[in-house]
Deep mutational scan, measured.
Amino acid sequence: NQESVVAAVLIPINTALTVGMMTTRVVSPTGIPAEDIPRLISMQVNQVVPMGTTLMPDMVKGYAP
């Protein structure tokens, strides 16, 4: 099972992602793959992401799977 990126904290809208904001977990449905965390650093979320929420591609500005 592939791990997906999950919010480790509440991430406010338009916040640039940092390593500490993200964790990984096997979830269903799957979100952004864990191995993409290095690509996500400094990208901004386009909505509020509650802690424990799986990051989906459409939540991150400029992210393309």
Results as ranks from 00 to 15, higher is better:
Q2M: 11
E3D: 11
E3T: 12
S4W: 04
S4E: 00
V5E: 00
V5G: 01
V6K: 02
A7I: 02
A7G: 03
L10P: 06
L10T: 14
L10G: 12
L10D: 06
L10Y: 13
I11W: 01
I11K: 00
I11S: 00
P12G: 10
I13G: 08
N14C: 04
N14S: 12
T15R: 07
T15I: 08
T15S: 08
T15D: 08
T15A: 13
T15F: 05
A16E: 09
A16G: 07
L17I: 05
T18K: 13
T18C: 03
V19E: 14
V19I: 09
V19R: 10
G20M: 12
M21N: 11
M22F: 09
M22Y: 02
T23P: 01
T23K: 13
T24Q: 14
T24L: 15
R25D: 11
R25Q: 09
R25I: 05
V26H: 15
V26W: 09
V27P: 01
V27Q: 12
S28C: 04
T30Y: 11
T30G: 10
G31H: 02
I32Q: 00
P33H: 11
P33R: 09
P33E: 04
A34G: 09
D36I: 09
D36C: 03
I37T: 07
I37N: 02
P38R: 13
R39F: 11
L40F: 02
L40R: 00
S42I: 03
M43D: 04
Q44S: 08
Q44C: 03
V45P: 02
V45M: 05
N46K: 06
N46L: 11
N46R: 09
Q47V: 14
Q47K: 13
V48E: 09
P50V: 14
P50W: 07
P50R: 08
P50H: 09
M51E: 15
G52N: 15
G52D: 09
T54Y: 03
L55I: 09
L55E: 01
P57H: 08
P57D: 06
P57K: 13
D58Y: 15
D58R: 12
D58F: 09
M59V: 05
V60P: 01
V60D: 00
K61E: 15
G62V: 05
G62D: 13
Y63R: 04
A64V: 15
A64S: 15
A64Y: 08
A64K: 15
P65K: 02
P65W: 03
P65Y: 02
P65E: 10
